[in-house]
Nucleic acid binder design. Structure first.
Lengths: 97, 97
DNA sequence: ATGCTATTTGGTAGAATAGCCAAATAGCTT
DNA sequence: AAGCTATTTGGCTATTCTACCAAATAGCAT
């Protein structure tokens, strides 16, 4: 593997990778218009809360979302609106078949 | 895992997944303004041609790119310009730290 | 401080991914 | 047909990812 290409595109690929999971896409949509806590998201998604926390951590580390703590809840918000634009784009791809 | 969420977002996640690799992002950029064959891309990337062929297959199956055959070469073109828009968006994320 | 709720972290097993090599296929061109 | 080039496919390992459970941490509230 050519190391230069890796260097150039690795961090960009990380962004895509962080979105490349149904649960994480659901989260992005869900917090688009409403701040939600880990617990609330967990109830909506229906997997173990530790799994949800790890998904949130991935999105947070890549700055897709931002968390703010109130009492002992962490509420998450979407940091990158253009993600949703690309999701519309992706859906156009899917539907134009 | 809640099956409904999987069903709703799985295919969308596939799009992101297909772009979540440095080599595939390189390909998307490289064929943006110029049709390129598997062999040409392989020379630019520097991995085994079978690896490149598999990357191209992933992008093709998700309709990110389109291949057309001339003689015994297959030339690839970008099918989804909005991918590049999102890549700009991704880079804004990266640089705003 | 003790409990109570929310969140994160560590560990682990199973699935998926990406690379290489080798072999198969496709399709010109003699 | 036989040779040549380009591409794809199969098989195999090594690595990465994801889900669960259990345990640790954080922080309010009694």
């Amino acid at each position: 593997m050519n190391q230069d290409i890796i260097d150039d595109y690795q961090s960009e690929a990380e962004i895509f990778k962080s979105l490349a999971h149904p649960t994480r896409l659901f989260i992005v949509h869900a917090i688009h218009d409403k701040k939600l806590s880990v617990k609330e998201l967990t109830e909506m998604i229906g997997v173990d809360i530790s799994t949800v926390s790890k998904h949130l951590d991935i999105l947070k580390r890549h700055k897709i979302i931002v968390g703010e703590k109130h009492k002992n809840n962490v509420f998450y918000t979407l940091n990158i609106p253009c993600v949703l634009d690309f999701m519309s784009c992706a859906n156009r791809i899917l539907n134009k078949s």
